[in-house]
Design a protein around this nucleic acid. Structure first.
Length: 591
RNA sequence: GGCCCCGUAGCUCAGCAGGAUAGAGCAACGGAUUCCUAAUCCGUAGGUCACAGGUUCAAAUCCUGUCGGGGUCACCA
């Protein structure tokens, strides 16, 4: 069953049509004046403009057609031509029962099923993640969950940064520390030792060292570039090393991602695109799509209608030293996905920093031009930067960044502290406390990030990430936990949920809020913006808190009211947990 | 300089496919616990929606310009 707003929109659309007006004008939404109505429709005013008629007159005619519609208790014209609708308690009760009992808690699956690749996370080998990596991880993972929830087929790919100059830097860095390792003998074709010559601490030490030296020392940089080129050309020792670097890094990355409840279906990296690079280059050269310019091979992607006086820079397929960068591996990755994934993707989302916008525009245009995958199936889901107090993005290499692992640890510590001071019965085991703390920390961290509009920058505030009061993840958990406690008590007392009766203001508000779930999901999906869902879930928790404060529930004496309120609680819990699950947040039993 | 994003309450942010009285959280102030978890709830105070024009019955929302902040602009990723 569709939500009330949608059903009313259909009825209103028909009424508009019956008057010879555009049915789209019948869009009905939640009223922004809850004192006056439950739902409103503003279409009469727009219709008046189109038809050059008096808006109130049109509105009045619509009222006549609509007043008999099932579920509408009252419909009136207000102001210049607003249509205000109040619905019956019976309709709200019926709708709430659907929320309570349906698998999707009142939401509907998407009408068409798509095959979607979501490229997110984008961690680099050897570089510990910092708070800037939180966004891609959490937004990407949430979009993955959202798409799946709506019925789409989704593949999440971490797309490791494992193929650039940084690899050459690591190789050179390691060769200076341990020059006698077999990997550095160019004549050695393998096999090489199975155990890794480095652990994550080694990588964390080597990378900044080599990266720094590469900046200041030109000869050193050239060695790194050479090593990178040799790696890419297939030098056996270097390839073997790369494998170790990746394995060691992935194991470390998984620790951070696990704590954020972020997971991937594929741990592919730029290096996995390598087998497709050479044939692709040949293909693009032979078809004249790539051309030579200043010693490099490029694809021109500027177009006629482009804004500005300066042309969009070309896509660099092969640089003048014969190397390839991430433009090329990204394009080859598209090629790989189109040919090797089943089902074949029809949409690819790239959850990457907004600053990469130009890069993706170039890659997408190149893909279109090459005929590999249509441009309109490629979307850069850019997000704003995480800024410091100075309003500027955290720098990756300079000091002053907060590591993601540190953020995770601090959130967990705060959660443990809070549990210690909360009046939880002391009968919880250490494992239970740990489990609750992890869930609270997870909720706090994910929600703090996800509630921000995807595209805007936000200032990193540690307090906000480790705060559990107000508009936070733990607030949502608290609402769910309270409901669970109520239901436990009711069960213990032998009381069950029953028929839903909506007869108080707070129950009404709660029912109306639950009706908005589907719209929130649709908005989040359509705009690829999880914050709409965050907003909904938060409003739901607030509406529940209001209801909780206004009525006894498990303690209610009247059996019919008690049964109804318990059912209402079950509906809220179902939708709350469902929504939280899409956001990647886990709910404890108590906290 | 070209292009992109942003400027809303003391702070952090929603709202922007135009609509009625611009909303949350934090911070401030005042209340609520013999009663289902106070990580909660109720209330008060706080805003020329950067500025100036324009379109419209109606603009925080759309258009133009100005100012301020950030990002980005072929061979690093």
């Amino acid at each position: 069953m569709a939500d009330i707003a949608s059903e009313l929109s259909v009825a209103f659309g028909q009424a508009f049509e019956a008057l010879g007006l555009d049915p789209k004008l019948g869009a009905v939404r939640r009223a922004d004046r809850p004192d006056l109505a439950d739902f409103q429709c503003n279409g009469a005013m727009a219709a008046a403009k189109q038809a050059r008629r008096n808006p109130r007159e049109i509105a009045t005619e619509l009222v006549e057609k609509l007043s008999d519609v099932d579920g509408i208790a009252d419909i009136t014209v207000a102001g210049p031509g607003f249509l205000n609708v109040k619905v019956t308690p019976e309709l709200l009760a019926q709708r709430t029962e659907t929320v309570r009992s349906s698998e999707m808690a009142g939401a509907d699956p998407s009408e068409e099923t798509r095959s979607i690749v979501i490229d997110f996370g984008g961690p680099n080998v050897a570089k510990p993640m910092h708070v800037g990596h939180l966004r891609s991880a959490v937004i990407g993972d949430t979009l993955k969950r959202l798409c799946r929830f709506l019925g789409h087929h989704v593949v999440g790919d971490a797309h490791l940064g494992d193929w650039g100059l940084q690899m050459g830097q690591l190789i050179v860095g390691l060769s200076e520390e341990q020059p006698d390792l077999p990997y550095f003998d160019a004549a050695n074709e393998g096999p090489f030792p199975a155990t890794s010559p480095v652990d994550i601490e080694d990588l964390a030490r080597l990378y900044p060292l080599a990266s720094g030296k590469s900046k200041s020392d030109e000869a050193y940089r050239e060695r790194c570039q050479k090593a990178t080129a040799e790696l890419q050309a297939g030098r056996a020792g270097y390839r073997a090393l790369l494998k170790h670097f990746i394995d060691v890094s992935v194991a470390a990355l998984k620790v951070d991602y696990d704590q954020l409840n972020v997971s991937f279906d594929l741990w592919k990296g730029e290096s996995d695109a390598d087998p497709f690079v050479a044939p692709m280059i040949e293909d693009l050269k032979s078809r004249g799509i790539a051309e030579e310019s200043d010693g490099a091979w490029i694809i021109r992607v500027a177009r006629e209608g482009d804004k500005g006086k300066t042309e969009m820079p070309p896509f660099i397929m092969v640089n003048s030293r014969g190397g390839v960068g991430y433009h090329t591996t990204d394009l080859a990755t598209i090629f790989d996905r189109v040919h090797n994934l089943a089902p074949k993707p029809d949409l690819m989302l790239y959850v990457v920093d907004q600053r990469q916008a130009l890069h993706f525009q170039q890659v997408f245009r190149a893909s279109e031009k090459a005929g590999y995958f249509p441009e309109d199936g490629l979307e850069h889901i850019g997000f704003g930067t995480v800024n410091g107090d100075d309003g500027k993005p955290f720098k990756t290499r300079d000091g002053g960044t907060v590591r993601l692992s540190d953020l995770n640890r601090m959130a967990l510590e705060e959660a443990e502290k809070k549990i210690a001071t909360a009046n939880l019965s002391a009968d919880l085991s250490a494992d239970e406390v740990r489990d609750i703390a992890l869930k609270v920390a997870l909720a706090a961290t994910r929600f703090s990030d996800l509630q921000n509009t995807r595209t805007t920058d936000y200032k990193f505030d540690l307090e906000r990430f480790t705060s559990f009061e107000g508009k936070t993840g733990p607030y949502l958990l608290y609402a769910a936990v309270r409901i669970k406690a109520l239901l436990r008590r009711a069960k213990a007392e032998g009381n069950a949920a029953g028929d839903i009766l909506i007869d108080s203001e707070s129950e009404r508000a709660l029912a109306l809020q639950m009706d908005a779930f589907n719209t929130a999901l649709e908005q989040s999906y359509a705009k690829r913006m999880p914050h709409f869902l965050c907003e909904h879930v938060y409003n739901l928790a607030q509406a529940f808190s209001g209801f909780y404060g206004a009525h006894p529930i498990a303690a209610e004496k009247d059996p019919a009211k008690r049964a109804s309120r318990l059912a209402l609680c079950e509906a809220v819990l179902n939708q709350l947990e469902t929504g939280l699950d899409v956001l990647g947040i886990k709910t404890p039993e108590r906290m």
